[in-house]
Amino acid sequence: MQYLVLIYEDEKRFANGFSESEFAEYGAFGKTNAGVIKSGNALQPTGTAKTVRVRDSKTLTTDGPFAETKEQLGGFYLLEATSIDEAASIASAIPAARYGSVEVRPIMVFS
């Protein structure tokens, strides 16, 4: 079973780039869990986001993310785990879990 792990934290923390030690922590996290991490990426800050809506076949594009939140989506991992407990336990080792919130959502399986 796969879980999408969404990382939310205050992106102002990275306004001047990542700290080297935190960066190394992500590297170590990736290595330790290489067997269960199916993919993962960091996103550019929400200032780069555009939101697209299609209404009556017309495309409306606006600046900014879908919603303004206190913490912002900064990246994600796709994990393979047998239960929410296992997924949550892996997710708790992501450095962002200490600074922000990590949301774990099951990927939909079509039966």
């Binding site: 079973m1 047998t82 239960s83 929410i84 407990d85 959502r105 099951p106």
Partner: peptide, 14 residues
């Protein structure tokens, strides 16, 4: 069901 909350006694550390 969907998030697979396990049906088990948690591990000793939890």
């Amino acid at each position: 069901q969907q998030a697979r909350i396990p049906y088990e006694v948690p591990a000793p550390d939890r």
